[in-house]
Every structure is written in C-alpha cells, then in structure tokens.
C-alpha cells in the first residue's frame, strides 16, 4: 500500500446472502486528491463507502482509512462524510442538530455556525430540520461533514435534490475543499459533477472496479472530426499517414484519431492530395461516453442490481 494513501482497500467484498454487492474492490486514494467514485445506481458505491467508514462489515478483504481500520474512532473524527442522504432529527433545528453532532464528534460548538455558513444555510439555521427542502437537508448533511474540519471528506451523491444553482454551489464547495488540501472522495452517478471536480476516477459496476485513472486518461485524446470532399480520397489519404491511429467514416464526416500535435499536418496532407477540407474540429470524449462504454462492457448501466437493504 502506498504510504501517502489516505484510503486503501484490498479485495474488499460484501455479500448479502447470495447477492454480492461489492466484489473484490482494490482501491487507493492518495492524500490531497479529489477522487471520483462513479457508477450506476446499485453498482456498489455506497456499500463500499459504508465499509470504509465502518458502518458495514466487509465479508472479506481489508481496508484502511487514514492509516486505521474502518470504523476506528480516531479516523472517523478526522473524516467528514455524507452517506446516502442526510439523517437528522426532524423536530430539532438545523443548528441544534449540528450542535448535537458536535457533542458526538467531540468538537466545540463554535464549529457549528462556520459549517452552516459554508453551505449557505446560516439564515435558516433556526428552522426545524423537518421543514427543510430536500436541497437544504442535503446541505445540512454536508455541513455536518465539515463540522470536524476533516482532512478526509467523503460525499455520497451530495447534489441529490439540489437545484441547478445549488448543484453549482456544491461543486464550488467541493472544489474549495480540494483547494484547502483536504482529500475528497466524491461518489456520484452524475458524470459532469465528477468530471468537473475530480482528478482521478474509479468506475464501479456490478460490484467490480471497472477502471481507475485520471479524468484525462479515461477520456483519452480528443478525436478530429474532418469534413472533406471527395471523401473517399480523404479516407485513403488519412489511412496512409503513419501518425494517424485510426480513421472511420461517421455520417457525413470522418472521425480521425490522431495526436493533437499532428492536426496541422493532417490539413496540409489533405490539401496536398487535392481534397477540399470544409470542416475540421476537435471532439473531446466526455466522461459520460467513457462511462457508458465501460459499463456496457461489464454489464449494463441501466439494469444495475439494487443493493439489498435489511428487512
């Protein structure tokens, strides 16, 4: 395991009877990085995070969080988390809820208002949690995660229930947490959210880690979309170029995989071959495209199994 690993998991597995919710997950999250945990609903994201936080015992495998075993009080006191929605007392105000949590976390009550301000909830701090909108409840959950001034922040679907402005604010907050040097794990099924915030990403599907890499690595190099006539001459010319990795017709244009530094060379060679280039643009693959490619290979993103819950 890497010495700068904030989280390490080896062959982490959770079975519920015959259902394998998480199957041999290996994972390393390094100190100071924003790490995305991407997967369809029921893929095993939340169960993995629950195991890391000690809420759920692994069936097999091992893990450490901040150098301690999962559920270790010292590690939990240095970790802020929001797992699968906020859980608070509906008859208490947002502020009182956090003051109670501060007692359980053994942190001073003076941390409460800064945490509420960080999620823009200070103005409604005195209102009962039960009267909060879904987005406000979610923000209170994030405030509770920040209460301990944690070095590790684990957020599971933090933008659930937020309106577009709330989602943007939440992304900015998560980016700020990363800028402050905290390690952030962001679990989500929203690709844009992860792409906007995280440096590295693990994709999980059907309990398996499908891939791990930087966002750039996963997205790969951008393709070149070429519109040219005559297209058969253009196709033959491009296929003859040694630095072109692949060419394929796609509708009325050609999709060319070629290193960015050879873009000008492509144009020059086509013109030299007598081809009229009418359009040329770089098309970047979105994380969403990568995600669907990966999950369709490992199973499907749409027929994800539901994680079992207790009866």
């Amino acid at each position: 395991m890497s010495t700068d690993a904030v989280i390490s998991a080896e062959a982490l597995t959770k079975r519920y009877g015959s259902v394998v919710a998480v199957d041999g997950v290996d994972l390393t999250v390094r100190r100071g990085e924003a790490f995305g945990f991407l997967g369809p609903n029921g893929a095993g994201k939340t169960t993995t995070l629950r195991m890391l936080l000690g809420l759920v015992r692994p069936s097999s495998g091992r893990a450490s969080i901040l150098g301690r075993p999962p559920g270790d009080p010292d590690a939990l006191r240095r970790t802020g988390s929001l797992i699968e929605g906020p859980g608070f007392y509906p008859y208490l105000s947002g502020r009182t809820n956090l003051e109670l949590m501060a007692r359980y976390a053994a942190v001073p009550a003076s941390r409460v208002m800064p945490a509420l301000e960080a999620v823009d909830l200070a103005g409604r701090a005195g209102d009962r949690f039960g009267s909060y909108s879904l987005g406000m409840k979610q923000r209170l959950g994030v405030a509770a995660a920040l209460l301990k001034d944690p070095e590790l922040v684990i957020l599971d679907e933090p933008t659930n229930g937020l309106d577009p402005q709330g989602m943007r604010d939440m992304r900015a907050l998560i980016a700020d947490l990363g800028d402050q040097g905290r390690t952030v794990i962001l679990s989500s099924h929203l690709m844009q959210e992860v792409q906007a915030v995280c440096q590295r990403v693990a994709v999980i599907d059907h309990g398996h880690i499908v891939t791990v890499g930087t966002v750039e690595e996963l997205r790969g190099q951008p393709d070149l979309e070429v519109r040219a006539t005559p297209s058969d001459t253009a196709l033959a010319t491009l296929r003859a170029l040694s630095y072109v990795e692949s060419v394929r017709p796609d509708g009325g244009h050609l999709v060319v995989t070629v290193p960015t530094r050879h873009t000008a060379d492509v144009t020059r060679e086509l013109v030299a071959a007598g081809v009229a280039v009418t359009g040329l643009r770089r098309t970047e693959r979105q994380l969403e495209d990568v995600f669907f490619d990966l999950t369709s290979q490992s199973g499907s993103a749409s027929d994800a199994t539901q994680e079992p819950s207790h009866v």
Binding site: P73, L76, T79, E84, G85, P86, M101, Y104, L147
Partner: peptide, 18 residues
C-alpha cells in the same frame, strides 16, 4: 427509522457509548 444512527456513528463515538 430516521437514519440518524448513521450520522451519529460517523461522527466518531464508540457505538456502545452512543
């Protein structure tokens, strides 16, 4: 039923103490 046990436990106290 209110899922507060999860919020309590992730604050870092010992379960038995809670």
């Amino acid at each position: 039923t209110g899922d507060t046990v999860k919020t309590l436990f992730t604050q870092g106290p010992r379960r038995s103490a809670v």
